[in-house]
Design a protein around this nucleic acid. Structure first.
Lengths: 223, 223
DNA sequence: TATTAAAATGAGTTATCACTCACTTATTTT
DNA sequence: AAAATAAGTGAGTGATAACTCATTTTAATA
């Protein structure tokens, strides 16, 4: 069975959004670009109007506030990020699709990296919000985190049963995987100089596989 | 060895040029706290004055603009974070101090984590700036990155010569180490729920050691 | 204690920005 | 084509925030 490509989800969303006028789309695009370039607070609604080539009043036609405009941009991401992060793996499929640890890691991450690459700007806006909006951060996390832990947990447990993965607590495994993933994403978002993204990506899979491969020195140090 | 706090540095810095008054110190402290709590843009100068227990005019007595106030906080961070991140390891000490990979990882790591813990607020302010001020980000990076690459590189090369570390390009090794480090720091800064910091820390060293331990499957996949 | 200089004050100024609304232009319906 | 509805406009408004300055308070010095 073919899993739908992640990047397709999002493309759909922007275009299928009912009868959205060209000017309204221009406003969304300009907002996203500016929020990602300068940050939400540093972007004025007149900036947006100017970049989109519309009058300032037009910005407020569909979105009552500037915050509502930001949320309209984030909504499709929030809606899709959950199924993407916590893709549902049926127990049956596991053995067939992920006979080796490397196959598992590769499958998981090509998906997520593709999604991230297609939505770099949106992710920047999300991270900016998450950094200082404590309430919403906790709200979003409380929705996403349990699902990720549960879904990924079941895969990890399966691999553990087959002794294909290191025997560490699942939350610790997830943390190190996510650290590597976010480290890679940071490079994308910050456009750090001197990075060859393709090379990094291949490396990422190697490192993650290595982290997860069971071995002899896997006891956690410290008391 | 005790790691100093950045706060001490900037108080030092200030007391060098003339005596700093208690109120001016209160303003700096309040600014730092508020910038870390709410972000720079979301903090008004009247907020700062109120928190510091002074009149708003007093804020502008020493610092001509709000941006200058932020820079007065960032300057000592930028000035002192370099030698700390890129602590100089003398070639002689290397073999004695880091006879094993784990000794290296542990040393590097406890050092920097302790530093980070003592300066969480300052780090938050720096990261906010780094996120959207492209110019200054590149400026700071161009100063720090080469030093880190050079200093850490010499240690890594030493370990490579002794076959104590995996034979990957140094920049890729650093990337995975920094990813793990920053993943851990994110937990500190964002106060993510359900994390037992001590446990994470012990785990981190284990993971990093595992990543870096040379093995058989260390070829980087993909072309 | 008297004099002088620096520090602090807070009411006031200016500028910006999010947002509104009476009106015009475009599109759809009859 | 006329009427009705929706989309778009831009000058205008109130609020807020950065910043100023004439005056007062505190500290230093003679």
């Amino acid at each position: 069975m073919e899993r739908p490509r992640i990047r397709d989800y999002f493309q759909q969303d922007l275009s299928q959004n009912e009868t959205i006028t060209p000017k309204q789309r221009a406003i969304l695009q300009a907002s996203l670009d500016l929020f990602a370039e300068k940050g939400f607070d540093q972007t004025s609604t007149s900036d947006i109007a100017q970049r989109a080539g519309v009058a300032e009043g037009t910005v407020y036609r569909r979105y009552k506030t500037k915050a509502a405009l930001r949320d309209a941009i984030l909504a499709p991401i929030a809606a899709h990020i959950v199924p993407i992060l916590a893709s549902d793996f049926s127990e049956d499929e596991l053995r067939q699709r992920y006979p080796s640890l490397q196959a598992f890691v590769t499958a998981i991450f090509t998906d997520r990296v593709a999604f991230a690459k297609a939505n770099v700007k949106e992710l920047k806006v999300i991270f900016e919000m998450a950094a200082f909006d404590t309430e919403r951060r906790e709200q979003i996390l409380s929705q996403i985190a349990p699902k990720v832990v549960k879904q990924m947990g079941s895969v990890i447990n399966q691999l553990k049963a087959d002794h294909l993965i290191v025997d560490w607590p699942n939350d610790l495994i997830l943390q190190s995987l996510l650290s590597q993933l976010f480290g890679y994403l940071a490079q994308l978002m910050l456009e750090l100089p001197g990075t060859e993204i393709e090379r990094e990506q291949a490396y990422l899979i190697t490192v993650m596989t290595k982290i997860l491969t069971p071995g002899e020195h896997d006891q956690i140090t410290g008391q």
